[in-house]
Simulated scan of single mutants.
Amino acid sequence: MEKFKSKTDLWFVLFLILLFGLILVRLVYDRSWIGFGFILLVSAFIVHIFLTTYYTIKDNKVLIKCGFFYNLAIEIKDIKKVSESYNIISSPALSFDRLEIVYDKLDTVLISPKDKLRFIDTINKINPQIEIKIKDQKRHN
């Protein structure tokens, strides 16, 4: 079993801290304790997502975990292509430096493993038929 943490964009973290910090300060200033409590809960949920977004390779599957609600298992034998992506669509990725995984017929998922090359090498050892398209190391299998 190999576990890969999600890469995290520092500017994104700083943006969220600034945004939620300013909202919380304003709510305290206005003495809006219900709103303060709600934003605190939302902040705790976001922190939980940051702490629990990772990708595991186990039993010939890629297991994708993000927070309480997102759990996806992909059979590595079903992966057709892995390519770099900077797509901003919502996904279980904490960075915009992403990998797009195409699997089954036309299913896709975007992830952001911190060590992209090791992730790709690990799945490629299990399924050498995966088409790999990345800048650092262009390979076509």
Rank of each mutant, 00 (worst) to 15 (best):
K80F: 11
I39T: 08
Y29R: 00
L14Q: 00
L14Y: 08
D97N: 12
Y86L: 05
I39Y: 04
F69Y: 12
G21W: 02
F45K: 02
I57V: 09
N87V: 07
Y29D: 05
F45G: 11
F15N: 04
S83Q: 15
G35N: 01
Y86N: 10
L22G: 15
Y70M: 12
I88L: 13
F50I: 09
Y54V: 00
G35E: 08
L18P: 05
L63N: 06
T52W: 01
K77A: 15
L14D: 00
S91Q: 02
Y86C: 14
L22T: 10
I74E: 07
L63D: 01
V13T: 04
R98V: 04
K77M: 14
E75K: 15
T53E: 10
D59S: 13
V82I: 15
F68R: 12
L18M: 08
Y55S: 05
L22V: 07
F38Q: 06
I57L: 06
C66H: 12
I34S: 08
F50T: 01
N71R: 15
F45P: 03
R26T: 12
L72A: 12
I17R: 02
G37N: 04
D78A: 15
I89F: 08
L41D: 08
L24K: 13
V13A: 06
A44N: 06
L27V: 04
N60L: 02
L40Y: 07
A93T: 08
R26K: 04
F45V: 13
S85C: 06
G21C: 04
Y86T: 14
D78I: 12
L94R: 05
F69R: 13
